[in-house]
């Protein structure tokens, strides 16, 4: 399911499904072959993750001797152990705080900026929009060196802000761009009517623009949450304190410390992976919409 599909005119969609339901022409490639091919591809894609979960229940020697065998028993004791000695709870909490704050900042600041760009003409508008648009193209390498020396001098490193600030900044260009597209599509009369009723600029933003932006905000939230959650390079450079590490760098620390206890390591990987898979299956539709809209910028 995609944003596109959802938004498509209903007639087109209806005709599409009718076509598939009531197609008279015989299938050119047999259904079975298709299903088979898809199943094989899906299994190949999914297998490494299954293997990871199976291996988490095995001993080192079992992983070595019979890598494909199913585990002889399912014992979550190793998972508990990995969770506790790996400080995974702490890393997850840090990731939640950092990602949550960044996404909030992106949504709030991004919506305000998009509102300004969409509803007002003002001096410097094109310049500022151009600068933000440049942000869509600039690679991380263009700023992370000076950013790190600057953060060090300002003593921001080894605080959560060292991640929240750049994650927010990196998410803003796309957020502003997408939200502006949404706002541009809103008929001007809606805003004018409110203004005639005496609503302030802020009220117009808060009670008209923001509610209208809700689908756009959801898209931006999903897209920026995923990239903040998974960001690695800056987290590696800016956070040395184990108590502040996020999941990617925390897990790396864990994996280099317990690299020879494969079962434990696979347990930690599984603990981190499974919630993401569950979240994805539950919010699959929204996430796919978010990604699709977010990437087709």
């Amino acid at each position: 399911m995609s944003l596109t599909e959802r938004k498509a005119p209903s007639s087109q969609r209806a005709s599409g499904s009718k076509h598939h339901a009531g197609r008279k022409t015989p299938l050119r490639i047999p259904d079975v072959l298709f299903t088979g091919a898809l199943a094989v591809i899906a299994v190949v894609f999914f297998f490494p993750m299954l293997w990871m979960v199976f291996s988490s229940f095995k001993s080192n020697s079992a992983i070595f001797a019979t890598p494909f065998a199913l585990p002889t028993e399912i014992d979550f004791g190793r998972w508990v152990e990995a969770f506790e000695i790996g400080h995974i709870g702490q890393y997850a909490l840090n990731s939640i705080i950092v990602t949550g704050t960044s996404v909030l900042g992106i949504l709030l600041f991004g919506a305000a900026a998009a509102f300004a760009f969409s509803r007002y003409r003002f001096r410097g508008r094109n310049l500022l929009m151009g600068l933000l648009a440049l942000g869509l193209l600039l690679p991380l390498q263009s700023y992370f060196i000076a950013q790190s020396t600057m953060f060090t001098q300002l003593a921001i490193t080894d605080t959560r802000w060292a991640l929240i600030i750049p994650y927010t900044a990196m998410g803003l260009p796309l957020a502003v761009y997408l939200l502006k597209v949404y706002l541009d599509a809103v008929p001007n009369e809606l805003f004018e009517a409110a203004r005639i009723d005496g609503a302030s600029d802020l009220r117009v933003f808060g009670s008209i623009a923001l509610p209208l932006l809700r689908p756009g905000l959801a898209t931006v939230a999903i897209f920026s949450a995923l990239s903040s959650w998974n960001e690695f390079l800056l987290a590696l450079l800016y956070i040395q304190d184990d108590a502040l590490k996020t999941i990617p760098t925390g897990l790396l620390a864990f994996s280099s410390r317990y690299v020879t206890d494969y079962g434990l390591l696979f347990s930690a990987l599984s603990i981190v992976t499974l919630p993401m898979i569950v979240i994805y299956i539950v919010f699959n539709k929204q996430i796919v919409e978010g990604i699709t809209a977010g990437s087709v910028k």
């Binding site: 060090t152 003593a155 040395q240 304190d241 184990d242 790396l252 410390r257």
Partner: peptide, 21 residues
């Protein structure tokens, strides 16, 4: 603060020394 060995030797210590705390 117990860091990963290789990280401490390369990126870790310089960052710590120049950082807050």
């Amino acid at each position: 603060n117990y860091q990963d060995d290789d990280l401490y030797q390369t990126i870790g210590l310089p960052n710590l020394l120049n950082g807050r705390n």
